[in-house]
């Protein structure tokens, strides 16, 4: 579904990614891990086209999308939930979802119902402005916002970071259900326990390079844990 090859990305003169390879087969849940500042968010931004790579390729669904613009990648089925539970703060919850659904030409109206099934708490908040929700509610909205476009792959950047524990559990369940329904997922996650419960495969970044990757089982390895310790 997603293949990233030899990706080099910089901010101005500061290079952050040095030839990253990563692949997420159709239907898999790949967990992207690594300490703070190693380049996980940068990698997702290059995959979605928010950042242009200096070199390397991004293939999505059998097609080279390296030069394609962000909104076109989204319309082809690449959903992205950025780090930090972002929303359109002055729009209501309903409008937040509407903007995304209206932008996706093929998305069915019922996609909104499906997303609300996953996060029933949002149903009661539809008329509230997103800026006034709690962080956890905003994160649920952010994920729902990506889902109403009916993506074939979902990129999630630390969806549980700084979120109250009760909602972390709901988010974890939701990710599990999405994975079970066949959605391909690339999840950035710092909690090893959560990654162990959800992932099929993992990739660990360090200083802008892939240092380990493999099956979820290998995450239990001590040497792998050492790469994640702060």
């Amino acid at each position: 579904m997603l293949e990233v090859g030899g990706l080099h990305v910089s901010y101005g003169r500061a290079q952050v990614l040095f030839g990253v390879d990563l692949s997420a087969p159709s239907g898999s849940l790949v967990c992207l891990m690594g300490r703070n500042g190693v380049g996980k968010t940068t990698l997702l931004k290059a995959v979605t086209g928010v950042l242009a790579p200096r070199s390397g390729t991004v293939r999505f669904d059998g097609r080279d999308v390296t030069r394609m613009r962000t909104h076109e990648r989204v319309r082809r089925g690449l959903g992205y939930v950025p780090q930090g539970h972002e929303t359109f703060p002055q729009l209501t919850v309903a409008e937040n979802l509407q903007v995304a659904r209206e932008a996706a030409p093929g998305a069915r109206r019922s996609a909104t119902d499906d997303a609300l099934d996953l996060f029933p708490a949002l149903g009661a908040l539809m008329k509230r402005r997103a800026g006034f929700l709690s962080g956890g509610q905003q994160q649920q909205l952010a994920i729902a916002r990506a889902l109403v476009t009916e993506p074939r792959m979902l990129l999630l950047d630390e969806p549980t970071e700084g979120i109250q524990p009760s909602i972390v559990q709901q988010i974890e369940e939701a990710i599990g259900r999405l994975h079970a329904s066949g959605l391909t997922i690339l999840l950035v996650e710092q909690y090893l326990d959560l990654a162990l419960r959800l992932a099929d495969r993992f990739v660990i970044l360090d200083a802008g390079e892939v240092v380990r990757s493999g099956d979820a089982e290998q995450l239990r390895d001590e040497s792998v844990r050492a790469l994640l310790a702060v």
Binding site: L91, V99, T149
Partner: peptide, 24 residues
């Protein structure tokens, strides 16, 4: 209107609008 809603979305968070599929 759809166009107005989209306009407000872009002005509030341009990058999020782009990753929501909006042609900013």
């Amino acid at each position: 209107l759809k166009q107005g809603r989209r306009m407000r979305a872009v002005m509030q968070n341009r990058q999020l609008a782009a990753v929501s599929g909006v042609a900013t």
